[in-house]
């Protein structure tokens, strides 16, 4: 097979090119997307600026200032000129920890969601494109993974990660990334499988096959570019869910381990010690960080969905 024939064939049977530029413009004009992008932008900016703020106020994320930040009975102080959001039960700066917590959330959430996207897309492409027994096997695997409830299974895996002397076999952060990815690729696989199976029967894919393009070439050239936008939108849908998943595991004490600050383990600290009842910022700080991030990403994906599918919302 010469290289010329398929090239010419694609000239006539070009895959339907979505109006990317126009679409991007109307997405960015959506109010919900604008709010979401602003909120997420602020969170990312603060996460990046965390060391700067730490240097500015002179408090590290795990440094304890028990003499300055705790009163004589050991109760943390509220907001002051040196501790802007007050201190936690160990005399650590809540603001600095909240900002470092943003880093942890993003550094766990983004890689986990991206790994899940890559695995899920690959599985979905194979299942949807080849169908038959490949599809059956992969669907069965997906079913099995889906039938392991997230938190309980995570408990098992984290428990098994501990050695007899109490240390961990794998770094807890890597384990959390792995667990979250292992539980979220299935959603990408389902989405991609459906889209691929649908594209498979479209004329331009059949044409590519007729002129003898190999399966991988068709997947790469015809299928992948067409499903990519939907998969990327879904990435933004899954990310906040995964950030909450990390926070939940850390809240339960099986995710990111103290003293590394994570919004989840900070909220757990505040709840366990009940100190938030006298120093509310101990709880409000990480809670606002978490909720703002989730709401921001949800707003973006809602807006994008409204633009792509105008009938989805109000009719």
């Amino acid at each position: 097979m010469s290289d010329v024939a398929p090239a010419r064939a694609t000239l006539f049977l070009e895959a339907p090119e979505p109006e990317v530029a126009g679409l991007a413009r109307s997405v960015l004009r959506d109010r919900s997307v604008r709010i979401g992008v602003t909120v997420v932008g602020v969170v990312v900016l603060l996460a990046v600026a965390a060391p700067l703020v730490a240097a500015l106020v002179g408090h590290g994320p795990t440094e304890q200032f028990q003499s300055e930040a705790l009163d004589s009975s050991g109760v943390p102080i509220g907001p002051s000129s040196s501790f802007w959001l007050g201190a936690d039960g160990n005399g650590r700066d809540v603001l600095v920890r909240v900002l470092y917590g943003a880093r942890v959330s993003l550094l766990v959430g983004i890689p986990a969601t991206t790994i899940a996207m890559v695995i899920g897309t690959l599985v979905g492409l194979l299942a949807g494109f080849f169908g038959g027994w490949v599809d059956q096997v992969l669907s069965q695997v997906t079913d099995v993974v889906l039938s392991f409830p997230f938190v309980v299974t995570a408990l098992s895996l984290v428990a098994l990660n501990r050695t007899e002397d109490g240390s961990s076999r794998v770094s807890p952060v890597l384990l959390v990334i792995g667990i979250v990815a292992a539980f979220s690729w299935t959603y990408f696989a389902r989405l991609t499988r459906g889209l691929t199976a649908e594209l498979r029967s479209r004329p331009f894919v059949e044409a590519s096959e007729t002129i003898g393009s190999g399966s991988w070439r068709i997947i790469r050239r015809d299928v992948l570019p067409n499903i990519a936008p939907a998969v990327i939108v879904y990435w933004a849908v899954q990310l906040p869910t995964n950030i909450v998943a990390e926070a939940t595991l850390s809240f339960l004490g099986i995710g990111v381990q103290a003293p590394t600050p994570s919004w989840g383990n900070m909220i757990a600290d505040a709840q366990r010690t009940s100190l938030y009842q006298v120093q509310p910022w101990f709880l409000i700080g990480p809670a606002v960080g978490l909720v703002a991030t989730v709401v921001g990403f949800n707003a973006i994906s809602n807006g994008v969905r409204n633009v792509l599918d105008p009938h989805h919302g109000t009719r």
């Binding site: 926070a247 809240f251 989840g264 909220i267 978490l290 709401v295 949800n298």
Partner: peptide, 9 residues
């Protein structure tokens, strides 16, 4: 948008 653990607290 509220995680269950936050709603609970």
């Amino acid at each position: 948008s509220l995680p269950t653990f936050l709603t609970g607290i």
